[in-house]
Amino acid sequence: MFECLYCHDALRIPVTYGCGHSVCSSHGLDVCPKNCDDQQPLLANHDVTLSKVISLLEEDEPTGRPWRNDEEQEEDCERGEGSRPPSRQRRERRTSSPKFPLADELTCQICYMLLFEPVTTQCQHTFCKPCLQRSLDHSPTCPLCRTALSPIAPSHPNAHLLELIRTKFEDQYISRSSTQTPSHRLDTPLFVCQLCFPGLPTFLHFFEPRYKLMLRRALESPHPQFGMVMRANDMDYGTMLDIRSVQILDDGRSLVETFGTYRFRIMERANLDGYTVARVERIDDIALDLHTQPPLASLVQHCLSFLNHLHANSTPWVVQRLSNSYGSPPPYETALQNAAAFSFYVAMILPIDEGEKAKLLPIRSVTMRLTMCVWWIEGLRKEWWFDRGCVIS
């Protein structure tokens, strides 16, 4: 029988903690005896699914060996102590039948399929981890009893239920695992929101359920990042953002700090659970030699002159906002040495339409990008009153 983590006896009316461990409810422990990290207050006095499973196994196996594997049953048959186990085909038909009670109890009440990575909530109901996460994205309550829960699903599966499922329903569990893995070809999630450039920070607010799911999957990947594009269908270029920090609020929203690393071109795209995923091709600048690029120095100087003029003649709140978001203009030598990043910095500061700025994304020449920035600057100079002086008539 399943063993209690505390008394090491058979589990009786178990409770399960967020860490996935279970003990007998009679011990009255508020937290896991192993002092695990994932500790949340219990809101019910017993694990509903695990309790029903234990009752079923006790009825089917009065000897106390609830789920012997096929090899053990074969040995018992050879000794004349039991019957030969059913064939794989018969076993699969039996365990997948709606009349098989154990399969019923191990069914997620959200997707109505075999539990995958079963997690038990504070109110002691069990669901597939991905299903519960998506449910909490929409409402921070239990899908069954509507008890208020933490907006973050438990990270550790119910240890006893997971072991039982992998033993009794191995083939079905492997099949479910394969359906939970997105296509490896379309491996870049895309956040359709705003324009951003490499070398600059971007602060984002995640509140839509589909993008909460996207963010969670990105954080679980080896390299937490995602792509940012302005529009879903007609924008073929974007910027890859590395996730620097995430603050999850009590209501499930997330404040995310990111940093642009490189540009990309979308080669293929599809929809996954409501958000866009894509196969992308990285875009890098052509090699730049400062000594063979005489216009570069004058272009950098021209842009710096305008930015300094903008800071000197703008209202204080505008200057403060620009400085807090993107930093003050760099010194000339720094801007020249990092001309690629400086071209994107200038574009982001300029008060022009984002659709116009997005034209820089596919350009691989730093000189060409700075030339476009100078062209935009000259257009602004013709329109702004402080460049023409104050005229008294």
Rank of each mutant, 00 (worst) to 15 (best):
C196L: 12
V374G: 07
C123K: 00
V300P: 00
I283V: 07
E81T: 02
T334W: 12
C7N: 06
H311K: 12
P224W: 01
S365E: 07
H311Q: 13
A270E: 09
A347P: 08
T315N: 14
P294F: 01
L144H: 10
P295A: 06
T107P: 01
T315V: 15
E356G: 08
T315G: 11
Y173H: 06
R231S: 10
P86G: 14
N338F: 04
S87R: 03
M372R: 14
L42C: 11
R91T: 09
W376E: 01
C108P: 02
S393V: 15
C128S: 05
P101S: 02
Q122P: 07
F197S: 08
A232Q: 12
I13G: 09
P351Q: 03
K382V: 13
D47N: 11
D47Q: 04
I54H: 10
L29K: 03
V374T: 13
Q293G: 09
L114Y: 02
L149W: 00
W317Y: 14
Q301L: 13
T167G: 06
T276H: 10
T179H: 14
I165A: 02
E208A: 03
S26G: 06
L310F: 06
L11R: 04
L106G: 00
D104C: 15
V15D: 00
A278D: 09
Y262D: 09
P209K: 02
D38Y: 11
C111L: 04
P222L: 01
E356K: 11
E72R: 09
M240S: 07
Q133D: 07
E163H: 15
D137W: 11
I243K: 00
A341H: 13
S393Y: 14
E92D: 10
